[in-house]
């Protein structure tokens, strides 16, 4: 059974580097949003993210993703994958991620408090 959730948004202040506000532009099924990720696999995939995203602390231009709520990360990555969010680096990185990859990354980064 697929129940589509419409993710209601706060306003995207600057569409390119919007951080992890919910977007009203991405529609995800409950199945995708609640997919159980494998944190070990997520840790492996995350090594790609850590070239730019520091594990501790953020930098101008690259937001902190450690400790971010799992669902916010899933929404953000799908929004990049669907080219709704505009940053070309993130669109490219998200483009090769499957639903399972995104779930694994999200559960891993959520755990980095």
């Amino acid at each position: 059974m697929l129940k589509y959730l419409l993710i209601i948004s706060t306003v995207l202040i600057f569409g390119l580097f919007s951080g992890f506000v919910h977007s009203d532009e991405v529609e995800l099924s409950a199945e995708i949003l609640n997919l159980e990720g494998d944190p070990e696999y997520g840790e492996y995939l995350a090594s790609d993210c850590k070239t730019c995203h520091k594990v501790k602390g953020s930098s101008p231009g690259v937001p902190l993703i450690s400790g971010v709520d799992r669902k916010d990360l899933i929404i953000a990555l799908h929004a990049y994958k669907q080219k709704i969010r505009k940053n070309p680096v993130m669109q490219m990185m998200a483009n090769r991620l499957s639903n399972e990859d995104i779930a694994a990354l999200a559960i891993y980064f959520e755990g980095l408090k």
């Binding site: 850590k50 730019c52 520091k54 930098s59 101008p60 231009g61 690259v62």
Partner: peptide, 20 residues
């Protein structure tokens, strides 16, 4: 604005990769 954001992103990348 986009070019400035790209530059700022590069500063973030430098900080990230050197920490990595």
């Amino acid at each position: 604005d986009l070019r400035k954001a790209t530059y700022e992103e590069s500063i973030g990348w430098y900080s990230g990769i050197t920490a990595d």
